[in-house]
Amino acid sequence: MRFVPVTVVHTGVANLASVQAGLRRAGAEPVVAEDPRAAEDAERLVLPGVGAFAPGMARLAVCGWVEPLRKRIEAGRATLAICLGMQFLGGSSEESRGIPGLSVFAEGAKRFPGHVRVPQIGWNAVTCGEGLRYLCEGYAYYANSYRLDAAPQGWCAAWSDHGGRFVAALERGSVLACQFHPELSGPWGIGLLRRWLGAGGSETGSC
């Protein structure tokens, strides 16, 4: 078995154990990077995210990740953004008003409405929009209080519902951004990681 090399951005506060274990199960060999040059050099890059928007973005800024990450994602290079990592791609978040994200797209993360359980913790059904390469229908594990309620232009989207429809995941080029945790989403999540890891290979689009 050939292990696929993948670089995981060390975001400081995030717990990387589950992400690394998940990637290993999907057939990857994860390496953790603290140096932002990895955003240019790495063939496949994972941007995990656990914690809050402002400290996370501050950490990316201090370590010099912001511009290299933005360039990489705009170029559609193989990048997997998870949970808060996906929210970093947007322009802002209601969690930390006035703090800009990477602004790959303008849309910002908004808090779930008050009539449903917040945080959303648990498994939610994912339905697919058009043009997706990696995603397929199934149940995904979420642990979030904020989400995108509309898909940015130029991105293909998958959807879930929690007090209204929200963006479960986005794809553009070889960029996959998931609001859920693929590494905690059972065999379905591992399958998704495998398809993304095989980006450009024969495994893509095998939903």
Partner: peptide, 29 residues
Amino acid sequence: REGLSIPLTVGGGVRSLKDAARLLEAGAD
């Protein structure tokens, strides 16, 4: 953690941020 692809909650004897960080680093979600 190594064998699980689903979330793991860990408790028991957590008295500080350091205790929690240790469990999270070990693979608790």
